[in-house]
Simulated assay, not measured.
Amino acid sequence: MVERLMLFDLPSDDALYDALIARSPAYEGLAYVCVKTTGIFCRLTCPARKPKRENTLFYDTVATCMQSGFRPCQRCRPLEEAGREPLVDELLNALDGDPAARWTEDDLIGRGYDPSTVRRAFKRTLGMTFLDIARYRRLGEAAKQLANGARVIDAQIEAGYESGSGFRAAFRRLIGKAPVMSQNRDLLVADWFETPLGPMVAVADKTHLHLLEFHDRKALPAELEKLQRKTRSSVASGRTPAIEQIDAELKAYFGGRSTAFRTPLALGFGTAFERRVWSKLMEIPIGETRAYGDIARGMENPQMVRAVGRANGANQMAIVIPCHRLIGADGSLTGYGGGLWRKQWLLQHEEKMKPKRLFVEEIQ
């Protein structure tokens, strides 16, 4: 399949969406649809209800889908392929039986497999190794457990992008979709860096940060497209002083040394109301939370709770504009674009830092 892909140019995403609606088998094994609202990726022939065009992404390999944070559909089973080598199906079935298991080469040997043979077979048929697939499945299982309130953050980190190598292809593809830069416009630059909660993507010009998001936020591709339209610029891979600064500040934050964020923010993408809400969020002290109604009342408009929620969701400066500090009126965790498990971790992390009064500490 890998060799076929190298010789085959996929049509436009609009053409692929038409093939999805028609359940056309023309691109079987050559293209997959990722559904941003569900986090699932499917074959184009999947019989499931079809998503809206704006909620779809199309990739040419299973590997890219999984590296971008999507998990395989249980209905059309895109990891299965007719006529495939038996050991691939055997190991995928074993993985389905216990998706949270931590597989090693010793486990493969214990089952009578040669690790190098397994590696080559999976790379030939799926474009990634079995151990990589197992790691992405563990990551998904850990995220679901954390969303349900379990204390399994160590398992999530262990299952995540430890070295960052698994994320590079998805990042290059994401940034590589940028349109040609218009004349007389500054180029925006994007880079990514590791955190205990998985990679984060930062986009900035020379002086200001325009976007900071977790790599698997479903809205990230749409946010990048919107940012490019708004600024009439392109996004290229690289670093600027603004990205260097936010990287250092996040290291201090996750290391428990500081919660001071002083990187200049470009907030022109928001409406005047949204910017007012974000300003209120940044006033919430470290280690504390507020309800949506609290923010609305603080803006002297208690009827605007829903609007506050929408403004909170429109924030594309994760952590720096602390939308994770907003909770439900009953004290429950509510929606968070980066995932409820991350929200829970961030609140627990900040609660530990609260007694140290680190929010006034200078970045050294």
Score class of each variant (00 low, 15 high):
2 V>S: 05
5 L>R: 15
5 L>E: 07
6 M>D: 07
8 F>D: 01
10 L>K: 08
17 Y>Q: 04
19 A>C: 15
20 L>S: 09
24 S>K: 05
30 L>R: 08
31 A>E: 09
32 Y>K: 02
32 Y>W: 15
37 T>K: 12
38 T>P: 00
38 T>N: 03
53 R>F: 06
54 E>C: 07
57 L>H: 00
58 F>Q: 02
62 V>S: 01
66 M>L: 10
67 Q>S: 12
69 G>C: 05
72 P>N: 12
75 R>T: 14
76 C>Y: 02
79 L>K: 01
80 E>C: 06
81 E>Q: 13
82 A>S: 11
83 G>P: 07
85 E>L: 13
88 V>K: 00
88 V>C: 11
92 L>W: 07
94 A>Y: 08
94 A>G: 12
94 A>P: 00
101 A>K: 13
106 D>Q: 14
106 D>L: 10
107 D>Q: 06
110 G>W: 00
115 P>I: 13
117 T>G: 06
123 K>D: 12
126 L>N: 08
128 M>F: 10
129 T>V: 04
131 L>A: 08
131 L>E: 03
132 D>N: 04
134 A>R: 12
135 R>K: 15
139 L>G: 08
139 L>A: 07
139 L>P: 03
145 Q>A: 15
146 L>P: 01
150 A>Q: 13
153 I>L: 08
154 D>P: 00
155 A>V: 07
156 Q>D: 04
156 Q>M: 07
158 E>G: 05
177 K>S: 09
180 V>M: 04
180 V>D: 03
181 M>G: 03
184 N>R: 01
190 A>Q: 04
192 W>A: 10
199 P>D: 01
200 M>S: 06
207 T>F: 09
212 L>I: 08
225 E>Y: 01
226 K>T: 12
233 S>I: 02
237 S>Q: 14
238 G>I: 06
239 R>Q: 13
246 I>P: 03
249 E>V: 11
252 A>R: 07
262 R>A: 10
262 R>D: 15
264 P>V: 13
268 G>A: 10
269 F>Q: 07
271 T>C: 09
272 A>V: 07
279 S>C: 05
281 L>Q: 11
283 E>K: 01
290 R>W: 08
292 Y>V: 14
295 I>Y: 06
303 Q>A: 14
304 M>L: 14
312 N>I: 10
319 I>H: 00
319 I>E: 00
321 I>L: 13
325 R>D: 04
325 R>S: 02
332 S>M: 11
339 G>M: 06
339 G>T: 13
344 Q>N: 12
350 E>T: 11
354 K>M: 13
359 F>Y: 11
362 E>F: 13
362 E>G: 09
364 Q>F: 14
